[in-house]
């Protein structure tokens, strides 16, 4: 049944789509570099308590703004907290933020897109107009409106970021569904009396998954940046959370006095986003050569 997940080489040797995709991915040096960096970041986030002896929250006011040294390799911030500890614990926060926000968007956006594309008609029209309304709001404005209602916190910022990217998933899922529902195997499923929910779940969803995986990988980076932006504005993570956006905000106040509290969180954000984007681009080239997964 899973026609969309199989391909054949002219030699006649059959290979799975994932094997093909992995081969294509491996040939992409940028994507491999991104993957290595991302794995390092994930490793650091998981192993944080074993990598550093310092707590990311412990203040030593009289050691505030100490420059990088053997005891504090990234120096200390304005409250005397070890910056290296805060950066690697901050990786935990950022990865969690990106994953949850993307997860929220996937959980809401994909079913809506599947239903919208499968049924078409008035349901599709209403859903697409709702998506258009969401798209009409500038992302940050929408997020600030949500934060104004719910109050500033990291979980609310994740929710706002998730809501902001829902339209991406609705549109990609719908577009793919429109194409897949015309396939013979979907018509066959209908002909033998499969209920709609079963057809969507069993025959359509697996065949629209690839562009959505690519979209999710790209959105991971954008949601991390988005939430870091909200934290920078004071609407996201609240003190003393180790989060790169709030660290950047605090650090830039002392930039003329000490460069390290702003530069290291900025670098961490830069490297992480670069790594995730490189992985995302690699996945797109490997899984979605037709380029169905396009964000805004």
């Amino acid at each position: 049944m899973r026609f969309g997940l199989r391909s054949f080489e002219t030699s006649g040797k059959q290979r799975g789509l994932w094997t093909d995709a992995f081969r294509r991915y491996r040939r992409n040096k940028g994507a491999m570099l991104g993957m290595v960096l991302l794995l390092l970041i994930v490793f650091a986030a998981i192993m944080a308590p074993w990598i550093t002896k310092y707590s990311p929250f412990k203040q030593r006011i009289r050691d505030a703004l100490s420059p990088p040294s053997a005891s504090h390799i990234f120096g200390t911030d304005h409250l005397g907290r070890d910056l290296f500890a805060r950066i690697i614990y901050g990786a935990r926060t950022s990865l969690k933020v990106g994953s949850i926000a993307t997860g929220i968007a996937c959980c809401i956006g994909i079913p809506l897109g599947l239903v919208s594309g499968y049924y078409s008609g008035w349901l599709d029209t209403i859903m697409m107009r709702l998506v258009d309304i969401l798209l009409a709001f500038p992302g940050m404005l929408l997020a600030l409106a949500i934060m104004a209602i719910l109050g500033p916190s990291l979980s609310n910022a994740m929710f706002a970021a998730g809501v902001y990217i829902i339209p991406d998933y609705v549109r990609v899922a719908r577009a793919s569904t429109l194409a897949v529902r015309e396939m013979d195997y979907v018509a066959s499923a209908r002909a033998i009396g499969c209920p709609s929910w079963y057809t969507i779940q069993r025959h359509i969803f697996p065949n629209v998954l690839l562009p959505l995986i690519v979209l999710a990988s790209l959105n991971l980076a954008s949601t991390i940046l988005f939430v870091a932006g909200l934290s920078f504005l004071g609407m996201g993570a609240q003190p003393p959370t180790a989060e790169w956006g709030i660290m950047l905000k605090d650090g830039r106040l002392y930039l003329r006095q000490a460069w390290w509290p702003a530069v290291f969180p900025g670098l961490a954000l830069l490297i992480s986003l670069l790594a995730i984007n490189m992985v995302g681009e690699g996945l797109r080239n490997a899984l979605d050569p037709r380029g169905l997964a396009r964000g805004r």
Binding site: K58, Q59, I61, L79, G234, P239, P240, D250, L253
Partner: peptide, 11 residues
């Protein structure tokens, strides 16, 4: 007031 109250938070 955030920074000064972060100090109190830590203490």
């Amino acid at each position: 007031e955030k920074s000064s109250h972060e100090i109190i938070q830590g203490m």
